[in-house]
Amino acid sequence: MTRAFSGRDSEELTLDRLAREELEADDVRIHPDTLEHQAAVAEQHDNPQLAANFRRAAELALMSEADVLALYEALRPHRATAEELEALATRLEGVPAPLCAALVREAGDVYARRGLLR
């Protein structure tokens, strides 16, 4: 059984329920546990990097659309100072999104060295 983000069983995504207007956006949104499962599958198929991506995705799955878009924006070149990236990483740890936080910290180090900070 696969549960949607809302907790609804994916088997319940039927035309009848659609007609009764019982389905909502979170009923067709992926659950972080499903992404963890996909990560395990990717690992079994010789792609640990894809697995790592799915695990970062599992963290982002908990976040709002606006927060995800803002995270992407902050990592674009010359958008953030070192302090802002560090603050972002700290916030991500609180989500909790430790894997994304680690990637942001790594980016911060590289950006500092390569002149990509604001």
């Binding site: 991506n53 970062r56 995705a57 982002l60 976040m63 995800v68 995270l71 992407y72 994304c100 990637l103």
Partner: peptide, 8 residues
């Protein structure tokens, strides 16, 4: 991060 955002 964009890659992870889509997967999310």
């Amino acid at each position: 991060i964009l890659a992870a955002a889509y997967a999310s």
